[in-house]
Nucleic acid binder design. Sequence first.
DNA 1: AGTTAATCGAGACGGTACGTCGAGTCTTCCA
DNA 2: TGGAAGACTCGACGTACCGTCTCGATTAACT
Lengths: 204, 204, 204, 204
Amino acid sequence: MVDKPAPDATRRSEKSRRAIYAAALALVGEVGYPKTTVEGIAARAGVGKQTIYRWWSSKADVLLEAFLDLSRQAAREAGQEPYAVPDTGDLAADLRTVLRITVDQLLDPRFEVPSRALAAEGLVNEQLGREFVTTLLEPQLQLYVARLRSAQDAGHVRHDVDPRIALELFVSPLAQRWLQRTGPITYAYTDTLVDYALHGIAPR
Amino acid sequence: MVDKPAPDATRRSEKSRRAIYAAALALVGEVGYPKTTVEGIAARAGVGKQTIYRWWSSKADVLLEAFLDLSRQAAREAGQEPYAVPDTGDLAADLRTVLRITVDQLLDPRFEVPSRALAAEGLVNEQLGREFVTTLLEPQLQLYVARLRSAQDAGHVRHDVDPRIALELFVSPLAQRWLQRTGPITYAYTDTLVDYALHGIAPR
Amino acid sequence: MVDKPAPDATRRSEKSRRAIYAAALALVGEVGYPKTTVEGIAARAGVGKQTIYRWWSSKADVLLEAFLDLSRQAAREAGQEPYAVPDTGDLAADLRTVLRITVDQLLDPRFEVPSRALAAEGLVNEQLGREFVTTLLEPQLQLYVARLRSAQDAGHVRHDVDPRIALELFVSPLAQRWLQRTGPITYAYTDTLVDYALHGIAPR
Amino acid sequence: MVDKPAPDATRRSEKSRRAIYAAALALVGEVGYPKTTVEGIAARAGVGKQTIYRWWSSKADVLLEAFLDLSRQAAREAGQEPYAVPDTGDLAADLRTVLRITVDQLLDPRFEVPSRALAAEGLVNEQLGREFVTTLLEPQLQLYVARLRSAQDAGHVRHDVDPRIALELFVSPLAQRWLQRTGPITYAYTDTLVDYALHGIAPR
DNA sequence: AGTTAATCGAGACGGTACGTCGAGTCTTCCA
DNA sequence: TGGAAGACTCGACGTACCGTCTCGATTAACT
């Protein structure tokens, strides 16, 4: 992603690539994003700086790919259906389930530091931000879209509702609490979000 | 805020403080947050670097105060009731109104760059993040809490609803679209959010 | 010396002056000349920086006066005839005596650091150098001139010899060894200098 | 000399080294030693500051090497026998000759400022001072030692005279006049020194 | 003895340079 | 020729002092 133009990718060292991913994730976890440096990654990976700059454009770019790689790996380990929203017919239950899994992930320190770092960089660095959203965030959100459409077909969601907007009612609050630390993140909280989102807050 | 311990604040130069705020905001607007440097702020403000480091601990800290100052000033100019959520008795209309105003603000480039920069820094820098939330974000959210409570009293919102959570149904989606650029920001969008949040997405 | 023009010397604080001298000498002795700062002197003397800049033009200037003051005090303590070259009629013996005293002084750490510092500064700072030579060095050398003239009158030194040059034969070598550390400084060494200077190195 | 420990000298940029020497000497000549800064040298040489700090420990260290380099170059240009004291059999004449040459050098502004600066720094900075004496001063003095020994063999100097001390009779006075500006420097003066040193000031 | 004006301690100010760190480029040598 | 190593230029960092400039609070000379 965001590769420099020239170099011949067929001769690329797989070993170096892996070492760089590992070093980048380890460093971000240990010293945090701002204190992670390209120099540090290179040293830790036993790699020349040029080898990093040859294949990536910046520290953010390295980390984005490293994190993508990590996600793919995690998905592969977790089984064939990566992060699909379950569809038992009970929309509320399904959403509660998947949001609880999301809560677990958000609180897993293995993911927290790098993804928070990427998100932060994405706010300010528009190019990276769009990359992040397109590659990581939106595909996940589309799973909710699919589930909501299925619910619409089943008559459990109003037909005039835009699923892409509807999903934000429960996803965005969770995202904001996590990103900006505006409140605690618990199962009770996400359950409540699902309830409010499905039935509204006005008296029925 | 976040001052160094020692220096005598009574002897502080008001002129320098103002010049530093102005320079910081101007630079962030012109070259973006990452290319804004303490050195640059000092030079632009006609001030010694030490005068910045004497009173603030980092560029993020300067910018936070500068932005706070800007907000206070804007509030003062805008009249006596800064950002109060209106209360006409029609909750939906009131929320639509205030969210439309928020949309205008989010798209005002005068505010966009610095507040996005602060938000980004706050993600990664926990101390600053909490400061940002406590000082800027939460006070605004409490205005929604107040409005929702009033609506509960009027019977327009269910009594078992937690207003602090409820407000996230329409505020957080807007925040996420703005911060992470996950979608367009329009009046139609916020109107829709209000509708979904009040009545839910399930059939009534 | 080298005073600023304006201030009213009659109202000057004697206590501050003494404290500044003491602080300057102490600091030069403790941390060396380059690490001695005006700020440090002021702090140690319990004095405002301006009080230093009001009366002296630089750290070198402070130190020069402090050292002059120290010398005067030492002379006063040492008796009424400060540093006169003795005149017993035996020129060689008298020179040996006075040079041995000089050796003792040069090796006294109380004098060594500040006078070496002043000499060094004087090399590079022409104005201070001339001040140093005029006020401290030359008056001492004139004592040798006087003694050599007396020796000429007694027929112990050739009449066509210029005493101001002649004295350098034994004074300058000692000065150079001390300043530039080009060799050890001992009584034997100065005795030898006197011998060579009086009788030459060519066979008689 | 006085290098930092780590860096690989074989990969050092010769071009940068030369540029730094030239810039250092030029700046010392133009603005004097105290106003010469590492930053200024780097800028003038078109070099990063780090490249200076990588190979030298201080501005004095840079200047010492630059001056050494200049001296070596001057020697190379001046022919194969750099600064040898001539030996025509007439000691007095030979000394007068070589001291007159020294006078010329001391008054040559190309050498004066940097060597005075180095000498001054050497007074206060013991490590540099010893380096200066060992590398530059003492080798020159040894040429006098050799000439004096030859004169002793020829019976023109007493056999019990220590040549290392004897040479100071005419070298040190000249050095002191130059360093401390205690008097004018002329051919007549050095001629007189040679006369006094060889035959003493006492009546023969 | 009271008034008054300068000096005093204190320290914030605009600056300059320090010595360090990391970015991103370039060069050399190895496999 | 890709990769490791690392020296290079550049620019910003945060610190230390510079010399100047207020600020009350003494304090000493003159009403």
